[in-house]
Amino acid sequence: MEIALVGIGKIAVDQHVPAINASPDWELAATVSRNGSVPGVPAYTDFTALLAERPEIRVISLCLPPVPRYAYVAEAIRAGRHVMLEKPPGATLSECHALEALATKHRVSLYATWHSRQAEQVAAAKAFLAAAPLKRLEVRWREDVRYWHPGQDWIFEPGGMGVFDPGINALSIVTEILPDPIHLTGAELGCPENKQTPIAAEMDFFHPQGAKVSAHFDWLAQGTPEWTIEAETEAGHMLLENGGAKLTINGAAPESAPAGLTGEYPRLYAQMAELVQAGGIDMDLAPMRHVADAFTLGRRVSVAPFHW
């Protein structure tokens, strides 16, 4: 199937393009971007022109920041295109629900992707927790925004989510591996004096079985990033590290995962192909609900100004 990639930034170049090129399901037929392009692929700067001039391209993959995304997705759906969304799927829950309803009306596929759920050991962690009553789960997601998002001012503007841009990756894993639903009970958001979104967050959750569940996000951590989920259960200790790539249970690594696709984005694109072929929609918004709740319940704490 031919696919167009919209928004040619770092994530598109590093992850989406290699995954598409390596897939037996997809051919990268065009790109849309004001500043970027992919060698050898027809490039557009206007999305409307792409839709009008290339009716044979039935699938759009969107890698734009959250705030402008709704207008692009709605236009694509109304033009009868299937759409794959980089996380988060939109700037607000309301617009995500509206897009799902629009996709249903126009009978096209819509996929809200959560790439961290496709990390190598997430499925094994989910299987362990399904059979082991939880006592405690702690998320530690700490990295350096200057390294991972250099100069990307939109992240600190309304709709950019701040530290929840990486933090939502952790929440996407947590909502995948926990057998019981959780919800936020309180949060503290560290907001730079000169920015609109938080650079750190502390979160506490209600667990229906009484387990203590918390998350700690820090966007000023120097050195090696920490992307860790640690759990204590009645069956012992679980440590999921490197964003879901490494798992130890009671100090030992589990058996190797079954053979299959390697890498988060190749798995996402394989799932998108299945959705299009089946005419399905996957708009799981659980990770985004937790972020929205943090902005609703979170106590803002002013911290030092942030400068690149």
Rank of each mutant, 00 (worst) to 15 (best):
A4D: 08
I11S: 13
V13A: 09
V13W: 07
P18T: 04
I20A: 10
D25W: 12
A30S: 03
R34I: 04
N35E: 13
S37R: 10
G40W: 02
P42Q: 04
F47Q: 15
L51V: 03
R54L: 03
C63M: 10
P66K: 01
V67Q: 13
V67L: 09
A71G: 14
A74E: 14
A79T: 03
G80D: 10
G80M: 02
E86G: 04
A91Q: 13
L93N: 06
S94N: 07
E95H: 00
C96N: 12
H97F: 15
H97I: 12
L99V: 02
E100L: 02
A101W: 00
T104A: 15
T113W: 06
W114Y: 07
Q121L: 13
L129F: 00
A132H: 05
L137K: 11
R140V: 12
R142S: 10
E143N: 10
V145L: 14
H149F: 13
P150E: 15
G151C: 09
D153K: 11
F156C: 07
E157A: 08
G160N: 04
G162C: 03
N169C: 05
N169Q: 13
A170Y: 11
E176W: 06
I177P: 06
D180V: 05
T185Y: 05
G186K: 03
A187M: 00
A187Q: 01
G190A: 10
C191S: 07
C191V: 14
P192E: 02
N194L: 01
A201I: 06
F205I: 00
F206H: 15
Q209T: 14
Q209D: 15
A211M: 07
V213G: 10
V213A: 06
F217Y: 14
D218P: 01
W219Q: 12
A221V: 09
Q222Y: 11
T224A: 07
T224D: 10
E226W: 08
E226C: 08
W227N: 15
E232Y: 08
E232G: 04
T233N: 05
G236H: 00
G236A: 03
I249T: 02
G251N: 08
P254E: 12
S256K: 12
P258F: 01
P258C: 00
G263H: 01
R267H: 08
L275S: 03
L275K: 00
Q277V: 09
G279A: 07
G279P: 01
M288S: 07
R289S: 06
R289H: 15
A294Q: 03
F295L: 10
R299N: 11
R300K: 12
V301F: 11
V303N: 03
F306V: 06
H307Q: 09
H307C: 06
